[in-house]
């Protein structure tokens, strides 16, 4: 039987890691970007500032960005573990993380405009549960910032203006348009989480789940791996650059998933993750042993 207090404690530590420590692969990609930029360009300066900021946050155990976003979490649990117990432990963890300033109070009552003050609210955090055969509990999460959430998009194919039909070439076209439309506003350089297919609900969920993949992860489907590599290259050729200052580093990664669709629908859904691609995870064994994932 899982001990709810231990769970809360472990979840709190996972959230602290997410908010204050940027995953190594993201730091590496930002550093590569810095090297690729022209010396003394604004793009280079922006990336230097970002990398300094990441170091400082880790040292000070303080949030990388003041917008600590929405905690979006996928929870796998064994047969017989109550999802209500898990949910309560997670909500408590988010509240404690907010009280300890790892998270900003980020839930606003949409009707009154009043901040709930505790970091949680209706639909916040966003939790997705799945039962599995393993005896372990596994949680994977991202903190999804508001500025980057605002530049997400859902396209409906065909899109005549972009010459985008219902095939992977059409997908490529709308993805490049989305990168162009975002400019620097989602705090570029960012990562595209993409879902081809699905409906208007499942598409966004899958597009966010794609953002759990580490940047070096190669898509097991060869056509999609090719699409990811091509959009990454061409997205960077657009020249938007860090913060929209112009430059070579606009995207850090492109991650594409697929869901089946209705015959009448062909959605391409894009979630944009800002440079502060805060990802974390934990696996809790049957005996309570904890393994940190990234």
């Amino acid at each position: 039987m899982v001990d709810p207090d231990r769970l809360t404690e472990t979840f709190l530590e996972m959230i602290r890691r997410a908010s204050t420590e940027l995953p190594a692969d993201v730091v590496e990609a930002l550093d590569k970007g810095r090297e690729a930029e022209r010396r003394d360009s604004l793009a280079e300066k922006a990336l230097v500032t970002i990398l300094d900021n990441v170091d400082l946050a880790r040292q000070k155990v303080a949030p990388i960005c003041q917008d600590t976003g929405t905690p979006v979490m996928w929870i796998h649990h064994p047969i017989g573990v109550s999802t209500r117990v898990l949910e309560k432990a997670m909500v408590d963890a988010v509240r404690q993380a907010t009280a300890r300033q790892f998270l900003r109070p980020n839930a606003v009552d949409t009707l009154t405009g009043k901040n709930t003050g505790v970091g949680t609210g209706r639909g916040i955090p966003f939790l997705h549960f799945e039962e599995w055969d393993s005896p372990d509990i596994e949680v994977r999460m991202i903190l999804k910032g508001g500025g980057s959430e605002n530049v997400g998009a859902q396209y409906k194919l065909p899109d005549n203006a972009l010459g985008a039909g219902r095939d992977l070439e059409g997908v490529r076209r709308v993805l490049l348009d989305a990168v162009f439309q975002a400019q620097g506003k989602g705090c570029s350089p960012g990562t595209l989480g993409v879902c081809i297919g699905g409906d208007r609900v499942s598409g966004y969920e899958e597009s966010k789940r794609q953002l759990l993949r580490p940047l070096p992860d190669v898509n097991p489907v060869p056509e999609l791996a090719e699409l990811e590599a091509r959009v990454l290259k061409e997205g960077n050729e657009l020249g938007v650059g860090p913060m929209g200052f112009g430059g070579r580093t606009t995207l850090l990664g492109v991650k594409v998933g697929v869901l089946d669709r209705l015959p009448a629908c062909y959605f391409v859904t894009i979630s944009y993750l800002c440079w502060a691609g805060r990802r974390a995870g934990v696996r809790i064994g049957e005996g309570g042993d904890v393994t940190w994932l990234s």
């Binding site: 300094d52 900021n53 400082l56 946050a57 000070k60 303080a62 949030p63 990388i64 913060m243």
Partner: peptide
């Protein structure tokens, strides 16, 4: 003047 978005710690410092 454009500050670097998200660089909360560097700027607070």
């Amino acid at each position: 003047l454009h500050a670097v978005g998200g660089a909360a710690q560097v700027l607070a410092n």
